[in-house]
Write a protein that binds this DNA or RNA. Structure first.
Lengths: 145, 145
DNA sequence: AAAATACAAGAAGGCACTTTCACATCAGTT
DNA sequence: AACTGATGTGAAAGTGCCTTCTTGTATTTT
């Protein structure tokens, strides 16, 4: 219907006969980088889903000014946050989740819940898998009694 | 409680006073790579959430054998898919979403729905943002009548 | 006058993720 | 005897994200 042409080096192919996987991957690419989810969930917890630059910086240990700036720009570009500059000195800038950004919180919460419920299982699966790799080389194929 | 030591270079810090953002980011790191979501959603659509290697390969245009193998290994390691090798010649291998993997489909569907509903808005926001950058240099600050 | 503030952009480098290409298996087919 | 099929591994190269460091502003404080 609408010829969507942009997107980060994604072939305009409808995978599996649907366009959903393509678009979902774009979303995951957008939100799955190192810092975006921290920004989104941090803003979500603050009153009015709003905070200034330095507040977010403090809320996310380890983030650099550069990455905070860049991540906020990306989210702003995608319409998920707004940026409001108050021309004071020193400057004050407030970021806020847009309604679009807040609408993303619901499905995000679904992921949060899934992780809360199931992450332990994932870690166990990893431990078991890694254990098998290192020590138990002998398997049914080679273990002909 | 349990000293989890592995994980992709993540500081053991509880961000925002919760551990959720950390774990969610781990999940997004896991599932947010270039191909994982295609694999998961492809398997989800197939009968029994099960398919062989070459079927998945055909279902995902552009994926290389190497990336398909590696992505499947990662998902297997995390307990999201199982791998069953039939020692035939030529070999046959079937992959299937585990119950853990299938439980992830529900929150994933939440993302799919959000994208279906809102992605157009994201694209519009991007277009508008990119437009402002290029041409409309003059803003309220410099435009003192 | 020098320092601190709050925010942000630029350059340079490292590292991780991806891609591409080649190679290996082993029975059945030509 | 060479080829094909189905799955997978290894090496090498490319690409882009992320980190770190530096520079900048204009006012208030010391």
């Amino acid at each position: 219907m609408n010829g969507h042409s942009k997107g980060p080096h994604l072939d305009p192919v409808y995978v599996c006969g649907h366009k959903d996987p393509m678009a979902v991957r774009e979303l995951l690419t957008r939100v799955g980088d190192k810092w975006s989810i921290f920004l989104i969930l941090s803003l979500a917890k603050l009153p009015g889903c709003r905070a200034r630059f330095s507040d977010i910086e403090r809320a996310i240990p380890g983030i650099s000014q550069r990455m905070l700036t860049m991540t906020l720009r990306h989210l702003e570009r995608d319409g998920l946050v707004t940026r409001e500059l108050f021309p004071e000195v020193p400057p004050r800038v407030e970021y806020e989740l847009t309604s679009l950004g807040r609408s993303l919180l619901e499905p995000m919460q679904g992921l949060v819940d899934w992780v809360t419920t199931n992450w332990e299982q994932v870690k166990e699966a990893r431990a078991q898998f890694d254990g098998k790799q290192g020590s138990n080389i002998v398997d049914a194929t080679t273990a002909g009694a």
